[in-house]
Design a protein around this nucleic acid. Structure first.
Lengths: 151, 151
DNA sequence: TACAATTTAATTGTACACAATTTAATTATA
DNA sequence: TATAATTAAATTGTGTACAATTAAATTGTA
């Protein structure tokens, strides 16, 4: 039987997921601040480091972010000299992005952040992998749009 | 052996947690929009519904939000007539908050949202409980500040 | 008891996050 | 082929989220 009293903040899965995300991003902040990168900028760089040039549209699908978030974010990364932005010659609607030379230098500095944070928190890598699998499955079932994970 | 290629966006636990949180909040949005509540406002109301009056400071600890976020949010809830804000007579630094009559009416309308969303996503309640336990444990180990979960 | 230290909210400034709209370019079709 | 429909980014507006600072009230202590 579900009474009103079951509506307790700390028992809400959505709230705990929201806190896990926020607190983890705070952990990243400690490492990213000295590199003058925000967490979202770091995510964008992750995509760009591991690939060739990519359109804003494709990047938005990978990151689950729309152009309203990405456009200013990419302009900031461009302003720092980390990426290059330019219109696609074959389709002038499309804006392509790729890492600039200065952006490649950063990769080595962020490479070990995830391991460092896991170590800090004392979460064993094996457990992290398990949780990752679980949450990927949650995401698949929760995700609203037909994006990469939903496919 | 950890190569650069392990730095793949979709394999980052932090990113998947961030997506789970965002996508879940989008699910809530569908139910909260008609009630003119944002997700964060809903969280604040959850605390207020299940308790007496509370100070902004204590609320901030429950919600893991600082006054920079809470002050404008509470002013909005007050503007909608859902809560009352007033200075504590015994300590004028403290602002107390409680649900207004109009705010109580909303509780019945949000009560079943979490179950509805679970049903939509097809995640069984038993699995949700398991994931909740797992993520509470992650939060405890990740949380930076000495807040409720860290104790 | 004066005054320094602390506490509590509020304020300021930066950076998302996303819905809705707009603009420009491309594609589809009458 | 002219025009309607679609697509891609950018823009606009609202609402967090948080660090840093400020201002007012309270507490601690010399």
């Amino acid at each position: 039987m579900i009474s009103d009293e079951n509506l307790i903040l700390e028992e809400q899965l959505s709230f705990i997921m929201y806190l896990c995300s926020k607190e983890t991003i705070k952990r990243y902040k400690e490492y990213l601040d000295p590199l003058d990168l925000t967490y979202t900028q770091y995510l964008a760089m992750l995509v760009l480091w591991n690939g060739d040039k990519i359109s804003v549209n494709d990047l938005s699908k990978r990151l689950y972010l729309d152009s309203g978030t990405l456009t200013p974010l990419l302009k900031k990364l461009e302003g720092k000299g980390l990426i290059e932005r330019y219109r696609d010659r074959n389709d002038e609607r499309v804006v392509l992005v790729n890492v600039a030379p200065k952006g490649f230098e950063l990769k080595d500095k962020v490479k070990h952040i995830p391991e460092k944070i896991l170590a800090e928190t004392g979460i064993p890598a094996s457990e992290a992998t398990e949780i990752l699998t679980t949450l990927k499955s949650v995401l698949e079932r929760t995700s609203v749009d037909k994006l990469p994970f939903k496919k």
